[in-house]
Computed example of a mutant assay.
Amino acid sequence: MPDPDPSTHLLTVPVGDEQLCESVAAFLAVGLAAGERVVYFDDDTGDAVLARLDDDGIDVTGPLRSGQFHLVPGEFTRAALLAPLDELDGLLEHTVRSALDDGWAGLRLTGQMNHGLTRPGGHRLDEYDRTLARAVRGRPVHALCVYDQLRYPDELIAVMRTLHRREEPSSPLHDDSLLRITEIGPAHVRLAGEVDHGNRPHVRRVLDLLMERVAHGDTDTDTVVADCASLRFCDVAAAVSVIHVADELPVTRRLRLDHVRPGVARLLDRCGAPFAAQLEVRVREPRALCVAEAVALAGGEPS
């Protein structure tokens, strides 16, 4: 029998910031598309989340101006984590009611809570999570709780897993907390983070795997695509390796790098990309807002 509760209370346990930003940006984007109010409680990753939204092609300037997107600055997030539980309960109640009264289809909440680990005087994070669960239950409210492995101890993550009915699944092709490679389609991957000597072989392995699929006719395309919108850095050897992949392709196959950042594109050019006939590089200039700009667009400090 379907669950009549319209709310969701999800847990995600990222292994690093690339997965964190991927999960949070995707969660917020779903709410924006659905006409919900989305709220991000920043502590120290707001700039990175905004950058990932930009990488994903999500323009948040309109939602910030209209009040659909609220980005709560770190000082307000930290104050909420140190407030008594009854005040926190009241804040959540106000946020839910405000979104619905303003005509939004629902409310979507996520953010950082790691400040509660480091400062005395705040309540325990499991108590915070139980308060959040009570606030969303029975309402069109969706909450994503982020407990990443870089900031939270394993024993706390284990407790938090028991408090959530659902955990967001994750199955990357590779994730070493510096570079995350995810599969978008049979011949389409996304690179996020940085490529260096330690993870360079994994990029080559993944590209070779996709090329094999194309060669065996397992896809309906002759082009392997790597989305590089979130690839901030690669070293010279990695750039040369990618060019060699393209050089080794038969004339009927192609490798396309989409949304390449200008700095990475310049490195590829210096390493010979313009002379690789089977390689196509499409450049995109990031235009992400920072937290201060986002708050200013929304009209200043949250009420």
Rank of each mutant, 00 (worst) to 15 (best):
M1A: 14
D3R: 15
L10E: 10
L11K: 08
L11F: 01
L11P: 08
L11Q: 09
G16L: 11
G16H: 10
Q19G: 02
Q19D: 07
C21G: 08
S23F: 07
S23D: 14
A29T: 12
V30K: 03
G31A: 06
A34F: 10
A34L: 13
R37G: 03
R37A: 00
R37E: 07
D44T: 10
T45F: 07
A48M: 09
A48E: 13
A51Y: 07
A51W: 04
G57I: 11
G57N: 13
D59G: 03
D59E: 11
G62C: 10
R65S: 03
R65E: 07
S66R: 09
G67S: 09
G67N: 12
F69Y: 02
G74C: 09
F76D: 12
T77C: 02
L82D: 02
A83G: 09
D86L: 07
L92H: 14
L92C: 13
H94M: 11
T95R: 13
V96R: 15
R97M: 00
L100A: 02
D101Y: 01
G103W: 02
W104S: 03
A105W: 08
L107C: 04
R108V: 04
L109H: 05
Q112M: 10
Q112D: 15
M113R: 04
N114V: 11
G116I: 02
G121W: 09
G121C: 04
H123A: 15
T131D: 02
L132H: 01
A133W: 09
C145M: 14
V146A: 04
Y147V: 07
Y152N: 06
Y152P: 06
D154P: 09
E155N: 08
A158F: 06
A158D: 14
V159P: 07
V159G: 08
L163E: 12
R165G: 15
L173W: 08
L178M: 15
L178W: 12
I181S: 00
T182K: 01
E183P: 01
A187W: 01
V189S: 03
V189I: 13
V189Q: 01
L191Y: 04
G193S: 05
E194W: 06
G198A: 15
G198M: 14
R200T: 14
V203E: 06
V203F: 05
R204T: 15
R204C: 00
L210P: 00
M211W: 04
M211Y: 01
M211N: 14
E212H: 04
R213M: 01
T219S: 00
T221M: 05
T221W: 00
D222V: 00
D222F: 06
V225A: 03
A226I: 10
L231C: 11
V242W: 07
V242K: 00
H244R: 15
H244Y: 07
A246Y: 05
L249R: 09
R256L: 09
D258M: 06
D258C: 03
V260C: 14
P262L: 07
V264I: 07
V264E: 00
L267W: 04
D269E: 15
D269S: 10
C271P: 08
G272V: 03
F275T: 14
A277G: 05
Q278M: 10
L279C: 03
R282H: 13
R284L: 12
P286S: 13
R287H: 12
A288I: 10
L289I: 08
L289Y: 06
E293N: 09
L297M: 08
E301P: 04
E301C: 05
S303E: 11
